[in-house]
Amino acid sequence: MRDAADLSRRLLPEVRDIAREAGDLALRYFRPGAATSARIWSKAGGSPVTEADVAVDTFLKVRLSQLLPAAAWLSEETADDARRIGRDLVWIVDPIDGTRAYLSGSRDWSVAIALLFEDHPVLGIVHAPAHKTLYEATRGAGAFRNGEPIRVSATTDLGSCSVAGPKPQVDRLARRHPRIGRPPRIPSLALRIVRVAEGAVDLGLISADARDWDIAGADIILTEAGGRLSDLAGAAPPYNRPDPCHGELVAAPAALQERVIEAITSP
């Protein structure tokens, strides 16, 4: 893991530049407060995709593969290749996390990039171009927002936490802690997690069916900022499985994680 951490630190400046270029490409089609100028169609299952998603995905695949040819690839907008299973190095990418927000003119979307080593994130970037904000981390080196160190909330009072997430999950927590705060919805899962990492919100809840590309880059940022991403059994999310789908997840300061899970799962 030490060699992988060293590799990720060497790669980080170039990956950061690539993420910013990808964000600039996405901004060409983005209209704040208005519908995107990009063409839109539906994928199998009915979720929307735009020509911006495809353009950014293509750009990232070319540039990141050139940067680290040995790495396999997993992306929301690329046909899956089973040869990634068992590979030491894997890029995991969501070219536009929060596509519905993007196409409607909301600023809460992001470009999410992770590098896995032996199925564990060792580098993560979540870039929010419309907010001019870039979050990043590598294993053992801390987490940063626009170059400044970030840290999860220091609160110890679960009952007064601000909690971002789907209403049914927040309601479950509110049964035990009715005074919790409910900030505005954060549609990008990657952004929801990194806002916990920077302490902008105390807790983030994620409903079942998140995919590797939604969470992997943000996961290491949260971890390096003193937080944890886990399922409702307290286990870290596994990555690079044949089915990259996850159950319900909790993003929280490490000191609060067990209490949050207990509160959500208690009858």
Rank of each mutant, 00 (worst) to 15 (best):
N146H: 06
R185D: 15
E148D: 15
H177L: 11
D94F: 04
V250E: 00
D171K: 14
Q66A: 15
I125K: 04
P178C: 08
R228S: 11
A34Q: 15
D80Y: 14
I85G: 02
D108R: 13
I193F: 02
A26K: 01
I92R: 03
S207N: 12
S8F: 06
G86D: 02
L232G: 05
H127Y: 07
D88Y: 12
D53K: 03
A38F: 06
P69D: 08
L158V: 05
R228G: 10
V62E: 15
P237C: 00
Y239D: 03
L27T: 11
V201S: 01
G234P: 00
L191G: 01
L103I: 12
A210M: 04
G86Q: 06
A70H: 14
D94T: 03
V196S: 00
C161Q: 04
S160E: 10
D157K: 10
G142P: 07
P187D: 07
T265M: 11
D202I: 00
S153R: 03
G204P: 02
A112I: 09
L203W: 03
R16V: 13
H246V: 00
A130G: 05
G199C: 07
D80H: 14
L134K: 04
G140L: 08
V194H: 01
P13G: 02
V260E: 02
S8C: 08
A143W: 06
R100E: 14
I215V: 04
G45M: 08
G140Y: 08
I261Y: 05
S110E: 02
R151Y: 13
L115S: 01
Y239L: 04
S42H: 15
D243R: 14
P242Q: 09
L115E: 01
L205V: 01
A255S: 14
T156E: 12
K167R: 15
A71M: 07
S188P: 04
D212F: 03
R16S: 14
S160R: 10
G98H: 03
S230T: 08
R185M: 14
A254Q: 11
